[in-house]
Design a protein around this nucleic acid. Sequence first.
DNA 1: ATGGGCACCTGGCTGC
DNA 2: TGCAGCCAGGTGCCCA
Length: 274
Amino acid sequence: MPPPPELPEVETTRRGVEPHVRGRHIRSLRLHDRRLRWPVAANIPALVQGQRILQAGRRAKYLLLTLERGTLIVHLGMSGSLRVLPAATPRLIHDHFDLELDSGQTLRFNDPRRFGSLHFTADDPADHPLLAELAPEPFDDSFDGEYLWRITRRRRVAIKQLVMNAKLVVGVGNIYASEALFRAGIRPGRQARGLTRAECLRLAQAVRAILAMAIKVGGTTLRDYVGADGTPGYFRQKLFVYDRAGSPCRRCGNAVRQRVQGQRSTYWCSTCQK
DNA sequence: ATGGGCACCTGGCTGC
DNA sequence: TGCAGCCAGGTGCCCA
């Protein structure tokens, strides 16, 4: 099973899709299997038919297709992928919908585990319930050490869980949470409020660095299609601690440790992280 | 306000 | 070789 789409994978998908959809008109939206995390509203095809796609954007891990009137909101969940294909391409199992374009291509969504989703909003997507409460984008100026310092002051929750809370930090899933904390030299079990200013700064920088690197790696394999991830190989090689329990830390050689934290596996090096 | 736990789902792996 | 059972993960939601 390939790694789940985190923010870099979603951004890679956005970049892959954008040139194929921008400026195109929607011939039709065909729903094949509406069973996703939330049942796909049956009236979406009628609402989007004939509309032009102005751009492909992203907010956190949500893909946003801006139409002339309204926005399609797509989430890849655990196993979702979007591909640009010739419209006649035979469908496979777990294909959920096709966004057929006037170019003769179709944007096809496949999602075995059905944690993905498709919504439409006629209003400002920023006001949509799924997006309204989200933290600032990691690459925004407002996301920095001071921001992390401010939001952690009263939080007793472990820093790893805080970093995975999309209302506080966006785009960091289980894998990159461990990786970012390793890079910042901070143990995942530390109480958020116990971090120093300097540590908050390092963590903010680490989050940005990890995401930027992953986007760069994803970009190298970008072609005319976009999978949920392109290449487990590249991906795995870059990981310092995730899924490496018992293996030597790539920095100091000590065994990488693992424990369950908030019902998720956490990995860290007790030498490199304090 | 905060934190903790649950639910959703299926491919891939483990162990008998 | 077959099969049952467990695990992984993102994240909205409910409850304490």
